[in-house]
């Protein structure tokens, strides 16, 4: 059976509230959804609750899934990331202020950023990870989707509900921001 047919059958089962389809859906997608959310929240209890919210919402609104717009995975990630970002938005974020950030960013060019990222030793990677921790939840989501999940820009745009051009701009700025954060962390 082709993947699209399998997805269609699964969605049809969810629409009819078929217990077997619900069981199959949960077994197949729960680990994946939990992984997405836990990467952002870094808190197991929050991640579990948000995973439950995502899966229940997906089953409740299975009738609104449109396979012509996105795959089932992308649709699920859209629900998961939106719920997670809403939760993280109200939680305090450990951010570092960058003095005069817009002006500082214009001075950062490609070679400067590359020079900061050229070291591949454990200390440099650790510093980069610390810098990522200081990004906002949305920024962390974007670079995770782009660099780890390797989603195309248009799919990321669908997941976070923003125009593709905006996503490209934000990704471009995030790289410069990471450079500035690394510089700041080195000074601390």
């Amino acid at each position: 059976m082709r993947a699209s047919e399998q997805t269609a059958r699964l969605i049809e089962g969810l629409r009819k509230e078929d217990p077997a389809a619900q069981e199959e859906f949960l077994r197949h997608y729960a680990p994946m959804v939990f992984g997405w959310i836990a990467r952002l929240t870094r808190n197991e209890m929050d991640a579990e609750e948000l995973t439950q919210d995502t899966l229940l919402r997906a089953m409740r609104y299975a009738h609104s899934f449109d396979p012509s717009k996105a795959s089932l995975e992308t649709w699920l990630s859209r629900i998961a990331y939106r719920l997670t970002l809403n939760r993280l938005r109200i939680a305090p974020t450990d951010t570092i202020s960058i003095d005069d950030a817009p002006a500082a960013m214009t001075k950062v060019d490609a070679r400067l950023v590359a020079s900061a990222f050229q070291d591949t030793d454990a200390q440099a990677i650790d510093l980069l990870e610390q810098a990522i921790d200081h990004l906002t939840p949305l920024e962390q989501t974007l670079i995770t989707l782009f660099y780890y999940d390797e989603l195309p820009i248009k799919e990321i745009a669908y997941v976070v509900d923003a125009p593709p051009g905006t996503i490209a701009t934000r990704l471009h700025r995030i790289r410069k921001k990471l450079y500035l954060l690394i510089q700041k962390l080195r000074q601390l």
Partner: peptide
Amino acid sequence: ESWRRTDAALRRALQQRC
């Protein structure tokens, strides 16, 4: 070329992180 190196570094870091 510089952006490509940056992307590669970021990809490595995020894959390690995740």
